[in-house]
């Protein structure tokens, strides 16, 4: 068992003929992901990956032909919002956007539109998801994690790899790893994933990797205290990051004191979460 993706995931890749899209599609296919289609406007009819995967001109055509139920996006930042709208309009229920650098006003429009259609988005600016042994959607290296009962959710990319790798080195595996991305406006957040892990029978423990900025970790702490029965271990990055020079007062008015690593660690500890001093300490805290 797992959350969000498993062996029944039928994946479609938007931007499959681009450099990154092709490289990571190769890796996803090699991992055993059920990659059913690619989309690149203007290249419909071609086949890629040694003739294993058909390319379509649009997500709509790809979905009609292959019944894909998940889309992963590798297109450049200026085209990514359109790619997300397209996938949602084509009726794809789960969209994963790897692209980094999407403009925030675009993301606000995308997020509000997707919410109205009840479409789940993971990312942008995220490494995607991995259910070890079943499915890999995104760019998390497959060989750094093994199947297991630890659910991992993270705002970071490479820091997540550190944690998966540290778990593997001591023989601990993951049920599913979800990289939700570090952008100010994204799709799925910590609470959504924590709730799924809480209800997933195969997940017994959870690792939450947060960082400075925003208040998502504080909300996660509230959720853990009131709704979660499974143990949670955490790490928060950015304890030594210097505060930026602030312009204007709106940030302070909206966020109040939230956003510091110190505040997040405090909130999580108050919710009964063990917070690691560095990522390699996480496995021992899970025991």
């Amino acid at each position: 068992m797992s959350i969000l993706i498993n062996k029944n995931t039928r994946l479609l890749v938007q931007g499959i003929t681009g450099n990154e899209g092709l490289f990571h599609s190769t890796q996803m296919l090699a991992y055993g992901t059920n990659l059913v289609a690619g989309v690149t406007p203007g290249k419909g009819g071609e086949w890629v990956l040694d003739g294993k995967v058909p390319v379509f001109d649009s997500v709509k055509l790809a979905k009609e032909a292959t019944d894909a139920n998940c889309a992963v996006i590798f297109v450049p930042a200026r085209f990514a919002p359109d790619a997300m709208f397209e996938a949602a309009d084509a009726g794809i229920p789960l969209i994963v956007c790897i692209t980094e650098g999407v403009a925030v006003q675009d993301m606000m429009r995308v997020r509000n539109y997707l919410d109205q259609k009840n479409v789940r988005l993971v990312g942008p600016n995220c490494p995607g998801m991995l259910t070890p042994g079943e499915s890999k959607v995104g760019i998390i290296p497959g060989n750094i994690a093994i199947p297991g009962n630890v659910g991992v959710v993270s705002r970071s990319g490479t820091l997540t790899y550190e944690v998966l790798y540290a778990l593997k080195l001591v023989g601990m595996g993951a049920s599913t790893c979800v990289g939700i991305g570090g952008d100010p406006v994204n799709g799925t957040n910590f609470i959504d994933v924590l709730e799924m892990f809480e209800h997933d029978p195969h997940t017994e423990k959870v690792v939450l990797i947060g960082e400075i900025g925003g208040s998502d970790e504080d909300k996660a702490a509230e959720f853990i205290a009131s709704k979660m029965t499974k143990p949670v271990v955490s790490f928060i990055a950015g304890q030594t990051a210097p505060p930026g020079k602030r312009m204007g007062h709106a940030g302070a008015i909206i966020e109040g004191g939230a956003g510091t690593a110190e505040g997040k660690v405090k909130a999580l500890e108050a919710a009964g979460v063990k917070v690691a001093k560095h990522p390699e300490e996480i496995p021992s805290l899970l025991k």
Binding site: S154, S156, T158, L159, A237, Q239, T240, A241, K277, H278
Partner: peptide, 22 residues
């Protein structure tokens, strides 16, 4: 020099944790 913002911050944090200064 690190790849990824989260890992870059973590690397700074851990340098500090072991008594250094980034």
């Amino acid at each position: 020099m690190v790849n990824g913002a989260g890992l870059a911050m973590t690397s700074m944090d851990i340098v500090k944790l072991f008594g250094g200064s980034p």
